[in-house]
Write a protein that binds this DNA or RNA. Sequence first.
DNA 1: CGTGCCCCCTGTCAGC
DNA 2: TGCTGACAGGGGGCAC
Length: 261
Amino acid sequence: MRVLREDVVLGPPTKFSATLANSVVESVGRRGKNIVFVLGPSLRLVVNLGMTGRLIYSERTSQEPDIAHPGVVFGLTDGATVIYDDIRRFGLLRCLTTVEYAEWSATIGPEPLARSFSTRKMAELLGKTASPVRSALLDQRRIAGVGNIYALEALWSAGVHPTQPANTIEPPAIGRLHRALRRILRQAIKARGTTFRDYRGADGEPGGFAPTLKVYGRKGENCARCNEKIARSLFGGRSAFFCPHCQPEADSTRPSTESSR
DNA sequence: CGTGCCCCCTGTCAGC
DNA sequence: TGCTGACAGGGGGCAC
């Protein structure tokens, strides 16, 4: 195994390769946005793809794939390779002991698709912060695995403005948001993800969810529900897309003077 | 402590 | 046809 880019692995690359050498992949799982390789009873490899990371599998016999930005090359015993490729190198590969894994996993919030993730649980999590609800949804310590696209799609579906303070959302809206988030995540997984630009699945194919998006990347287009123009704003360093009509700004800090828009 | 901001990095595209 | 700036599926680290 070779580390070609030190900044995509956690800790010293020599230690990373030495620890992983000769390990056996027993199973592959997921925690939030992270792929988890179980390597025997005491070791795990956690892969976060960041924005542009990919894991590319190539058979021994096949052509050397066209890989522009290899970060780590894993050699398998049958001669095949798995290459971690990452244009922007925002991804990170962690080699963790089981104890370290448990500590790391404990810093991440509950899985929104778990049966135990109830509306009440979501209300409790969102109630803890006055941050914009979009920021709260993206915060992996609160809820695992929700990214900008799905957060914004769920907010549109629920009719909640992205900057509304999380702890001011009324129970009915929390209920709609909970339902929408889980439905959208399930649909997007079924469609094998969202290719907005260059995302590709492990098989190299683009995801099929993009045509289903109601607001993300649709600034200036008409809202599918009310025909108003979709707006875009910027906060927390990221774009937010929303419908100004379906998702009115419910700013509790301001006296409720109704203004026409 | 929780929160928000900056930054990491490369590629692409719109606008001049 | 260039050049420049804005922006992109994320999250770690560090000032407040």
